[in-house]
Design a protein around this nucleic acid. Structure first.
Length: 837
RNA sequence: GCCGGCGUGGCGGAAUGGCAGACGCGGCGGACUCAAAAUCCGCUUCUCGCAAGGGAGUGGGGGUUCAAGUCCCUCCGCCGGCACCA
């Protein structure tokens, strides 16, 4: 790795100001509402054992710059940080070593905190939260109780992955290609187990609708819309031949009902058992067993060929009384719609594939537009061979047949969502205990609020018991309790909450982190919410944001929070790739360690480089040479302000081991910085820079803001080299612009300039538009759209004069010679374009 | 397959429909130095030309416009998401 010489003593400056900020609590946010508030939030990290990587500080730097900028603009800024600390790795480590997950977690948090602090972020550390802290998860449990009481939490038997080899429940991501990803066991299958679910589907419509209220990128909103997956259609009942039972299907195309030539039930559909004839039973059972081994992912990915089995039963098409066969096939999912479909092979690609494979009839009921084949046509057309709706265009046909079905009790209009209820329980130790008990007499009983927090029991062995129950089932003492309702014997719930739980509401706890009476005080919530800017990785575009929005809406409905949406503006930072352009990973050996970067170049250089690489939202590769570039820039800033001659005394002080503060005191201000009046040119440069940096910050254009400051420095250095002074009236505003980006250097130079107060709350400089008005502008002369010359003219020169000047121009005359002028376009202060032929 | 985003020098990237390539990296040349490093100054899209100057150029093709990286159509490629969703 090429090394660059240290450009300035960041190694003394940075720790100095970090301790100053900590000792003075410089960034403590006050809850008094005198100033306008600005709540700027980072997605808090899971403190992994590996420590911070360079991806984390990208978003954190962006928010930190804005937080500092907003403070300088007079806002009361809330900018907190905390830890999403429940999770699997600490539990896995506990299983292997017996170390309590709380110990591992505490250690990892300490590492993360040290690394985050070494970058000089202006968090209000008095508001730090940790989701594993009982004082925190007490309120996670409390919110669960509110959900439970509202009927939004319920238990159900749900198929989960069971590994016979591990004797344990596996998470979806632990199963790959039908094998246990941890130990390679092959006997893995889905087994129904009792689970807790949250009724997020009850909020599907509002989660969809309220996307209108937020300022997020279109792509994220679209992802959420797709995830919720609302579709309108109808439910239709089909009578089963020779049986009282009916099959209800959901379809978005009720207008194709006349083309239904068979039906398909999902293999898991409860009616399968009932309708299957004896002759088909063996085949049906074999098929159902095979299907149970496949996850839904396998079913979709591996199913190139359609498979299925005839049940032997028939259904009656309600519109024409046709008898149609009932099949089972795994291309129909039990979890979507009603788990059963009417198959219209002529107008559905999947049904057509299936019908062709099993020689089922294909009946055209939608006429495709001229030139298109009607078989396999899935778009809107005109109904044919369809009784009462024949001749109607698709939308009208849908409507009419739905009304007809409704009048006869055969069906009704229906809306379906892809979104499913949220599987909220985990068969794990290291999560929030679910605060309910199971009583033989009273059933499921919530704990009273006074019993919170419900703590995790101390355990020696974190492995799950062979019974397939969660590890907590082994905590026999903890397990036995009294029923809060009847006082009789009861058992505690052994499932715990998923990692998502703690992150669903942490932004609210930051507002009032120590409150023992409530999860957040009402007046504080009202003052600080909503979050004005939320920055984090795109990997949370769907789940975390959807879950958090859901909880927020429930709390809103209960009157606990004042806004329908929690996050006004959301920005996703892009990924930082390794220097080879590949995703950073240990195995590739391309991981950049922030500790090393800070040691070599300093925190300010790291911050600046992360912002200079490119637009925040883009994916971009790390470059060591790139960071050397911004490091050199900071060195230029340093040399712009300090007296080079005093550096010798400084070096000597360092050499004899003087304390940092004392050594830094020997650095003197550059003699070029004087109380002189800036020249007109300097004025213009300064005000143009202020305007550009301010505008860029408002638009989060960090990379271009840094470019503008580089231009300022380059031009100013040239001036100084030519013997010009660097007037204080110019130097100070520039430093104020740079301070949010490189705060340590900012503070040090601010002090050097003689200020005693921190630069963090110094007012942001204003620019004077009058200074920016140019007296002379460069205009461009074009002939037939091609640039031929550029000349300086007086600003505001009127069209006639500008045109005249163009025609008088030598270059223009050369290129128009012998041609007829057809048209002249004049844009004052910009250009003249002469069209000639 | 569907949805969304993006294609600009050797590289990271700039450009309210009006000078393409700001700024940085890298490269080349120069100053300073015994020398090197560091620093400072200059040049650096490609191409023809000794030069002056000319031509081409923002993934390919077409269009709108006096003028297109920017707007429209179409094709290709890359990235992200969803994926038998009835």
């Amino acid at each position: 790795m090429a090394t660059t010489r240290k450009q300035y003593p960041f190694d003394l400056i940075e720790p100095k100001w970090q301790s100053h900020w900590a000792a003075n609590k410089t960034f403590r946010a006050s809850d008094d509402g005198a100033k306008p508030k600005f709540y700027i939030l980072d997605m808090f990290p899971y403190p992994s054992g590996a420590g911070l990587h360079v991806g984390h500080p990208e978003g954190y730097t962006a928010t930190d710059i804005l937080a500092r900028y907003k403070r300088m603009r007079g806002f009361n800024v809330l900018h907190p940080m905390g830890w999403d600390a429940f999770g699997l790795p600490a539990e896995q480590y506990a299983i292997e070593t017996g170390t309590h997950p709380a110990q591992t977690t505490a250690k990892n948090i300490a590492t993360f905190k040290r690394q985050i602090q070494m970058l000089g972020f202006s968090y209000d550390w008095d508001r730090e939260v940790d989701t594993t802290d009982p004082e925190y998860f007490k309120w996670t449990q409390w919110i669960f109780l509110q959900l439970f009481k509202k009927g939004l939490a319920y238990q159900q038997s749900v198929p989960v992955w069971w590994c016979e080899g591990c004797k344990a429940v596996l998470a979806n991501e632990e199963v790959k290609d039908g094998k246990c990803d941890r130990k390679g066991h092959t006997n893995v299958s889905r087994r129904p187990m009792r689970q807790w679910l949250l009724r997020i589907t009850a909020y599907a419509d509002r989660l969809l609708e309220d996307l209108k209220l937020v300022d997020w990128t279109e792509s994220i909103k679209e992802m959420q819309r797709n995830w919720i997956g609302r579709s309108e259609g109808a439910e239709v009942k089909f009578q089963i031949s020779n049986s009282e039972s009916q099959i209800t299907v959901f379809t978005t195309r009720p207008d194709t009902l006349f083309g239904a030539t068979y039906m398909v039930l999902a293999p898991e559909h409860p009616l399968v058992e009932k309708v299957t004839t004896d002759a088909q039973r063996a085949a049906v059972n074999a098929y159902r067993e095979a299907a149970a081994k496949k996850s839904e992912l396998d079913r979709t990915n591996l199913a190139k060929e359609k498979t299925g089995v005839f049940t032997g039963a028939y259904a009656i098409n309600p519109v024409n009384s046709e008898k149609i066969p009932i099949w089972i096939a795994d291309y129909v999912m039990i979890s979507y719609g009603t788990g059963a479909i009417m198959a219209v092979p002529a107008h559905d690609t999947r049904d057509l594939e299936f019908a062709q494979k099993f020689n089922l009839p294909v009946l055209v009921v939608v006429q495709a537009p001229a030139g298109k084949e009607s078989i396999g046509f899935v778009d809107d057309g005109v109904a044919i061979n369809s009784g009462l709706i024949t001749g109607l265009p698709t939308p009208e046909a849908k409507q009419k047949i739905t009304v007809w079905l409704e009048e006869r009790g055969l069906g009704k209009k229906a809306i379906n969502y892809k979104l499913r209820d949220w599987l909220f329980s985990r068969q794990r130790y290291w999560g929030e205990p679910i605060p309910v008990v199971h009583c033989a007499k009273c059933g499921v009983v919530p704990l009273p609020e006074t019993a919170l927090p419900l703590m995790l029991p101390e355990m020696k062995d974190y492995t799950p018991p062979a019974s397939g129950e969660p590890p907590l089932a082994k905590a026999t003492e903890w397990l036995k309790t009294a029923c809060p309702a009847c006082g009789g014997p009861a058992m505690r719930e052994t499932n715990t909450m998923p990692q998502w739980a703690g992150s669903c509401w942490y932004y609210l706890r930051f507002i009032d982190p120590k409150n023992p009476q409530a999860f957040v005080a009402k007046d504080k919530e009202k003052y600080w919410m909503p979050v004005d800017l939320y920055v984090g990785g795109a990997e949370h575009a769907v789940l975390h944001l959807l879950y958090a929005r859901f909880w927020h809406k429930v709390l809103f409905d209960l009157g606990h929070v004042s806004t329908p949406e929690p996050f006004t503006k959301l920005v996703n930072q892009g990924m930082i790739l390794g220097e080879d352009g590949q995703k950073m990973s240990k195995s590739r050996g391309n991981v950049v360690n922030p500790d090393e970067v800070v040691r070599e170049f300093g925190a300010d250089s790291m911050r600046l480089y992360e912002m200079f690489m490119g637009p925040l939202a883009d994916t971009k590769p790390w470059s060591t040479e790139g960071i050397q570039g911004v490091h050199r820039f900071l060195g230029r800033v340093w040399r712009l302000f300090v007296d080079e001659n005093s550096m010798e005394a400084f070096e000597q002080a360092v050499a004899v081991g003087a304390p940092a503060e004392q050594a830094l005191a020997s650095v003197k201000l550059s003699p070029a910085i004087r109380d002189a009046e800036p020249t007109a040119e300097q004025q213009k440069l300064l005000h143009a820079t202020i305007k550009a940096v301010t505008d860029d910050l408002e638009a989060m254009g960090f990379n271009t803001a840094i470019s503008r400051m580089m231009e300022f420095v380059n031009e100013t250095m040239r001036g100084i080299a030519a013997g010009q002074p660097f007037p204080r009236k110019m130097a100070e505003p520039f430093l104020l612009l740079a301070a949010p980006f490189a705060p340590h250097l900012g503070e040090q130079i601010w002090q050097l300039l003689g200020h005693r107060e921190s630069i963090a709350y110094a007012p942001w400089p204003a620019y004077d538009p009058a200074v920016l008005v140019a007296k002379e502008v460069e205009v461009v002369f074009q002939v037939n759209g091609k640039l031929r010359d550029r000349v300086k003219v007086a600003a505001g020169l009127d069209r006639m004069d500008l045109e005249k000047a163009a025609f008088a121009n030598d270059k223009v005359r050369q290129h128009t010679a012998g041609k007829t002028v057809r048209k002249v376009i004049v844009v004052p202060d910009k250009l003249v374009n002469i069209v000639a032929a």
